[in-house]
């Protein structure tokens, strides 16, 4: 078995509004590409088999698990990571609501939740509580029991609606 005879590929993507390029092995996951090649360590890996949602990023307006994609698959795409939600340190409505409601504790799953919730509210700005719970059921948190997370997304939806 030859495991090291691997040709490298160039990947060009737009990440958080900036054009980025790197040369990677075809087997490198998008998550590892973001973390190791682009230095965006806000995207976390907690299962690496597509269940926990910690590595969720937005690719061309869809929430995607970056552990289940190879970097070469997203060549030419536009990607938003958690770092891109508050580019100047100004929290987006979901992040702000998480802070107010104590929607996080250890914070490790938080980037995935914040990205998923941001994508959820972009697709459905006025969700029911049931839709919020179903929309976040692909993200696992081990600290909060989800109580304050659900409250935070409710708050973000309500405050965004009130501001419209």
């Amino acid at each position: 078995m030859s495991t090291h005879d691997i040709s490298l590929r160039d990947v060009h993507v737009t990440v958080n509004g900036r054009e980025r390029a790197a040369t990677v092995e075809p087997r490198k996951t998008l998550a590892d590409f973001l973390r190791e090649d682009l230095g965006l360590t806000g995207t976390h890996l907690a299962c690496e088999h597509g269940v926990c949602g910690a590595c969720t990023v937005i690719i061309d307006d869809r929430a995607v698990r970056s552990c289940l994609q190879f970097a070469v698959q997203v060549d030419g795409s536009s990607i938003t990571t958690v770092e891109g939600l508050a580019p100047d340190g100004e929290l987006n409505p979901v992040q702000r609501a998480f802070m107010i409601e104590h929607g996080l504790q250890c914070g490790f799953c938080t980037p995935g939740f914040v990205v998923s919730a941001t994508a959820l509210l972009a697709a459905n700005p006025d969700p029911t509580d049931r839709e919020i719970r179903e929309g976040l059921s692909g993200n696992i948190c081990r600290c909060t029991g989800y109580q304050a997370i659900v409250r935070a997304v409710r708050r973000a939806a309500d405050e965004t609606a009130a501001a419209r």
């Binding site: 360590t41 995207t43 508050a86 802070m99 107010i100 996080l104 938080t110």
Partner: peptide, 21 residues
């Protein structure tokens, strides 16, 4: 008081520093 957490600004914006970072 349920004051907001000092930890949250960094953790919500992807700027925590866990061991793999």
């Amino acid at each position: 008081q349920s004051v907001t957490r000092k930890e949250d600004q960094r953790l919500l914006t992807g700027h925590g520093q866990y061991v793999d970072d």
